[in-house]
Design a protein around this nucleic acid. Structure first.
Lengths: 213, 213
DNA sequence: CAGATTTCAGATCATCTGTTCGTTTTGTCT
DNA sequence: AGACAAAACGAACAGATGATCTGAAATCTG
């Protein structure tokens, strides 16, 4: 197979770059202008070449009908995509992940399959706002992945809503009689004791992801 | 917030369905025909409503300039698998990820493509041993993902090997004259100052992943 | 019910955008 | 240099597509 000409490679690169920037493909004229080509027919000519080599697919008579082949979303075999459906902050109740339509989703985070049995069913993710969970070694901006559940085992780290304090926190949960001990992940910090009926378990912590920059 | 009308919901659903089917967004007329609407103005009107609610974004005067907000562009190739090639602990130099055979790999971690350009090239992951990086909000057992590099910009969080102390640490890097200030991520903790020739940059921190149980 | 507001229709216009055709330039070989 | 093909060009064309205007129907509100 002959190599692509510089121009063909440039066209291909530009389409990819454009697609990274926008959610729709470029027009022939977009390409023409960007690459400093003086005629649309030149672009058309080169697109034909790329099409013959199966590097792109073209939909005739349809504007922006350029598709990059090989960019078909290949569901990553392993990782599970979990939707980021809101924020979590000390002073706010967790928004429960039920009536979330596609549109509410802030983004997605990939988690390893070990922590996401059954394809990540029941998992949701929240973006941490503020420094209130610093004692759980969770920073502002971190993404926490939770499994929705309203009960838990002793020793599990859960997101709980404290009724009387009206705040959300993320701690290790220990039921001791009819009081609950909430232990920060940071072992240097002291636990909180509170009546059992003051805590509402929102979900179990499954993973924390911090992405720098 | 008022609920979407049936038609608005239908439009939204159709755009999503269309985007699943093709790599480019639908035109106003595509929507009109599919939903049996008799005028493009009706579609335009409803798109305006959807736009005001931030469910879509429109690019004026551009054909197919409809973007679904909150939708992960399919091009974003999914998670990238990064090999976990060793451990990182305060007292140990980082094992450099070069001659690692398959057998040395402790496992893999998936990271989002945003932090892994070029398919995760140059990335490697280490399992944190011990509590020495607690000041960087990194716990025992966490996985840190690094990009191999021996230089960095000021303000970047990097893994450095301190020659005289003979230990590895993970801090924000600031070169100030011929000394280096290493600032813990935890803002309540004090920085370390050390001569520039005492630090060996091992890699830049890209992501931190904590998996509970 | 009356008026206001929202939603829809039909038609028309302006522009965006892909296609085509004839021509010219460039590169490669003999 | 001459022959030939690949690549680039420029203009013109036509279909594709978004915007807008006017008015009517449906729905809501008091």
């Amino acid at each position: 197979m002959k190599k692509l000409s510089d121009r063909q490679q440039a066209v291909l690169d530009y389409i990819a770059a454009f697609l990274d920037q926008n959610d729709y493909p470029p027009t022939i004229r977009d390409i023409k202008n960007e690459l400093g080509i003086s005629s649309t027919s030149v672009v058309d000519y080169n697109l034909k070449v790329l099409e013959e080599r199966d590097l792109i697919r073209r939909n005739r008579n349809i504007s922006r009908g350029i598709e990059l082949v090989g960019r078909i979303p290949q569901r990553s075999s392993n990782a599970v995509a979990v939707n980021i459906v809101g924020q979590i902050a000390a002073g706010l109740p967790i928004e429960v992940p039920e009536a979330f339509s596609q549109e509410d989703i802030l983004g997605q985070i990939e988690v390893s399959p070990e922590v996401a049995p059954r394809g990540g069913e029941g998992l949701f993710a929240l973006k941490v706002k503020g420094l209130s969970m610093i004692d759980a070694l969770i920073n502002d901006g971190d993404i926490v992945v939770l499994r929705a559940q309203s009960t838990c085992e002793n020793g599990e780290t859960v997101a709980v809503w404290l009724e009387s304090e009206r705040e959300t926190t993320l701690k290790k949960f220990y039921l001791e009689g009819d009081t609950v001990r909430l232990q920060p992940a940071n072992i240097t910090m002291d636990p909180i004791y509170t009546p059992a009926d003051n805590v509402r378990i929102q979900g179990k912590l499954v993973s924390v992801v911090r992405q720098i920059d």
